[in-house]
């Protein structure tokens, strides 16, 4: 696993090496809950520094792709690789190290209500045993990046939905991951706020972080004109550079 930190929050480098970072090869998996097929024979590659939309209906298998990448799930057949590491072969003790290299954002923000904004972000560093000096330096920087430095001492409930999602993004970025994954990050947000969040994700991507976003919001996909991987019934039906949500 490469541990080079990309996308230092304050950096504005635009590094796109084009190296294949994520590789799905004939991946099939079933839902661990009910054993129904979730993905079948899925293959694709995502290069370093790419911005990719995963689109499709609810239950199409978008989240399964993300869950495989953080080893919440294991593929039944095929292989999921990140930087030449086969996640299926990863030992349990090495899973945390994998996740430290991936930031994750969800539709429901998942903030801790009894902690302040800066404490929420610092939490991600504290559980990794980072020094106080490092926390004091990194947290304000990443809050500044998402434009919430002035609200560092507020609690989540005092923030709007868009602001809460920005806190979640700050927390996902604070450990300087190479990959940022977002599962319907704008699902709970109004259109204006959605645009703000998309701008932020774009900015993060431009700074060098690979961004993978699962969504069924046609509007933003059409607007962003990034690579689109469409999944239907657990299979890739389209993989298009600078795509739109649907053909018709």
């Amino acid at each position: 696993m490469r541990r080079v930190s990309r996308a230092s929050p304050a950096s504005t480098d635009n590094v796109k090496s084009g190296e294949k970072m994520i590789k799905f090869e004939n991946v099939s998996m079933t839902y661990s809950k009910n054993g129904l097929p979730a993905l079948s024979e899925v293959s694709f590659e995502i290069a370093d520094g790419e911005f990719v939309f995963l689109v499709g209906q609810s239950g199409a298998g978008k989240s399964s792709v993300l869950r495989l990448l953080i080893r919440e799930e294991k593929s039944l057949t095929g292989s999921v690789m990140i930087d030449d590491v086969d996640l299926g072969q990863l030992k349990e003790k090495d899973i945390p190290q994998l996740r430290r290299n991936i930031g994750m954002v969800f539709q429901d923000f998942r903030l801790l209500p009894d902690k302040t904004i800066s404490e929420n972000v610092a939490f991600a560093l504290q559980v990794l045993n980072k020094t106080k000096a490092e926390i004091n330096q990194t947290v304000p920087a990443v809050l500044d990046l998402v434009g919430l430095l002035d609200k560092a001492n507020r609690r989540p409930e005092q923030l709007s939905g868009g602001e809460q999602q920005r806190v979640a993004i700050a927390r996902a970025l604070v450990n300087r991951p190479a990959i940022l994954m977002a599962d319907e990050p704008t699902g709970n947000l109004d259109p204006d706020t959605t645009v703000e969040i998309m701008r932020l994700l774009d900015q993060i991507n431009k700074a060098g972080t690979t961004v993978i976003m699962a969504t069924h919001d046609a509007g933003i996909v059409d607007q962003m004109r990034k690579r689109v991987i469409e999944i239907t019934g657990g299979q890739i039906v389209r993989d298009q550079a600078r795509g739109v949500y649907g053909y018709s």
Binding site: I70, E92, K93, I95, P96, Q97, L98, R99, R100, N101, M104, R110, L112, F123, A124, V127, L128, N129, R171, N175
Partner: peptide, 11 residues
């Protein structure tokens, strides 16, 4: 959240 950000089993 601890699992997501890569907390170890012991943590």
């Amino acid at each position: 959240i601890m699992r997501l950000v890569g907390a170890s089993k012991m943590a």
